[in-house]
């Protein structure tokens, strides 16, 4: 099986990297830029916030990001209603001149779990307005199928709560989602360390999106490299096809020619 060409395709756009990273929580812009660079990511998420009109001294995020190199994926993080999320997406499109949005409608502050009812409402409106919608959702195959049927360009089930670092809590649900939908499945949220990202990819996911796992690591740049390798290793292992799990041993040396 040729393992050379393996692009991630979202809404007709091709990407070499299957890792998507956020731009929040870094100590400074230099650290962020370096971490994104070594992560190999081509899609990076950004948030939409009010400009501080009284203090214009602060540097802007876009001063530090090479827009020729990266695809910006504005998110609606912090939105709790469909209405707010739709408003944020419209502003994001105007600010960034791209139709790609990561749609996130949260249910409560403690868990940051998605409010799927509002998510579906917002997705419907945004798709009708021509947005390319990548929704953050629960690891629920039924909701993922609804999002796909509606016209979402991908589905992004969580592995575990945002920022929790608990890893892929329900790999069986992720597996069912993978069998249920045809659009790319990108695990969004929950990754804590490299093995979590590798597990997501070994399951057959099309990509992984993370922020805290890298930005919150003691050495974010080193962790970004670890994630880059883990996503690639996991993907390669998935495509290579692992051996089946068995309860008992299978000898790997020939039995013929034993001395006794």
């Amino acid at each position: 099986m040729p393992l050379t060409s393996d692009k991630l395709v979202i809404a007709g756009r091709e990407f070499d990297s299957r890792l998507m990273v956020g731009t929040g929580k870094y100590a400074d812009f230099q650290q962020m830029v370096r971490a994104i660079e070594v992560s190999g990511a081509q899609i990076i998420t950004v948030a939409v916030r009010r400009v501080n009109i009284s203090d214009r001294s602060k540097e802007s995020l876009l001063d530090h990001i090479d827009l020729k190199k990266y695809t910006l994926l504005p998110n609606t993080a912090g939105c709790y209603t469909a209405e707010d999320a739709i408003r944020t997406c419209r502003l994001a499109r105007e600010a960034g001149l791209s139709d790609f949005v990561k749609l996130e409608v949260l249910g409560d502050e403690k868990t940051l779990f998605p409010n799927n009812e509002e998510l579906l409402k917002a997705a419907k409106v945004l798709i009708a307005e021509g947005f390319t919608v990548l929704p953050y959702t629960s690891d629920d195959p039924i909701i993922c199928k609804k999002l796909e049927d509606m016209g979402c360009a991908a589905v992004m089930p969580l592995g575990a709560p945002i920022g929790s670092g608990l890893g892929i809590r329900n790999p069986y649900n992720i597996q069912i989602i993978l069998e249920t939908v045809k659009v790319p499945v990108i695990v969004d949220a929950g990754v804590g360390t490299a093995s979590d990202a590798a597990i997501a990819m070994e399951l057959g996911c099309d990509g992984v999106l993370m922020n805290t796992a890298i930005a919150g690591a003691q050495d974010p740049v080193a962790m970004a490299e670890a994630m880059n390798l883990a996503v690639r290793a996991g993907r390669l292992a998935y495509r290579a096809g692992r051996i089946p799990r068995k309860l008992y041993a299978t000898a790997s040396s020939p039995l013929a020619g034993l001395i006794a």
């Binding site: 956020g22 731009t23 948030a47 916030r49 400009v51 912090g78 920022g163 993370m210 805290t212």
Partner: peptide, 12 residues
Amino acid sequence: IVHFVGGGAVRG
């Protein structure tokens, strides 16, 4: 008036 700030799978 809004702009892009750092944010990801977290609250920006």
